[in-house]
C-alpha cells in the first residue's frame, strides 16, 4: 500500500529531523547528562557507595574510576533498570564476590561480636560508671590524721593561695 508506505517514510523523516534538531540544540546549549535517568542514577550511586571496589584500596565502587568499578556500576545499573530491588542486587553481588564486596557486613555467627560489641561496651561502660558513682557517694573521706591536721592549720594560717580562687 503506497499511501501507508509514504506515510511511514514521512513519519520517519520527521522523527529524524526532530532528533537532529534536538542534537543541534544540545550542541549549542545544554550539556547532556551522562545518564538519561537521573533517578536511576541516584539509586545506582547510593548503592555503589556501599560496595567495595575489589581492586582498589579502600575505595567504594561509587568513588573509584578503576575499570572494574565502572563494570560493577554498569552491572548495578542494568539490574536496577531491569526492576530488581537494591537487596536483590546486593545479594547477587555477595553471591558472586563474597561478603568482602559490601561495606556493611552481614549479621552472622562470625560477625556477631562486631555488631553487638559497641552495645556491650556501652552497657559495660555505663554500668561501670553507675557503680563507681554509687560507691563514691557512699564513701566517706578518710579522716585527717594529726600530722595532716597540723599541716592544714599551718596552711590556713599562712593564708589561702590567690590562684585557686576561680573556676
Amino acid at each position: 500500500m503506497p499511501a501507508d508506505f509514504y506515510l511511514k517514510r514521512l513519519l520517519r523523516a520527521a522523527t529524524l529531523a526532530l532528533a537532529c534538531l534536538g542534537t543541534v540544540a544540545h550542541a549549542a546549549g545544554e550539556a547532556v547528562p551522562v545518564s538519561d535517568d537521573p533517578e536511576l542514577e541516584a539509586r545506582v550511586l547510593a548503592l555503589s557507595h556501599n560496595l567495595r571496589c575489589l581492586v582498589c584500596q579502600n575505595e567504594s565502587v561509587a568513588e573509584s574510576r578503576a575499570p572494574l568499578a565502572v563494570d560493577m556500576r554498569n552491572q548495578v545499573r542494568e539490574q536496577l533498570a531491569a526492576g530488581r530491588s537494591e537487596q536483590e542486587v546486593v545479594d547477587f553481588l555477595v553471591a558472586r564476590f563474597g561478603d568482602f564486596v559490601v561495606f556493611t557486613p552481614p549479621f552472622k555467627a562470625t560477625t556477631a561480636l562486631l555488631w553487638i560489641g559497641p552495645g556491650v561496651l556501652l552497657v559495660a561502660g555505663v554500668a561501670g560508671l553507675a557503680l563507681r558513682l554509687r560507691r563514691r557517694l557512699n564513701e566517706t573521706p578518710a579522716p585527717l590524721d594529726d600530722a595532716e591536721r597540723a599541716r592544714a592549720r599551718a596552711l590556713l594560717a599562712a593564708g589561702s593561695s590567690p590562684e585557686e580562687s576561680r573556676k
Partner: peptide
C-alpha cells in the same frame, strides 16, 4: 573466618 569489609555504614550507625 572469611573476608569482610567494615565501612562507613557501620561506623556511622555506631
Amino acid at each position: 573466618l572469611g573476608k569482610i569489609s567494615v565501612g562507613p555504614p557501620y561506623f556511622e550507625a555506631v
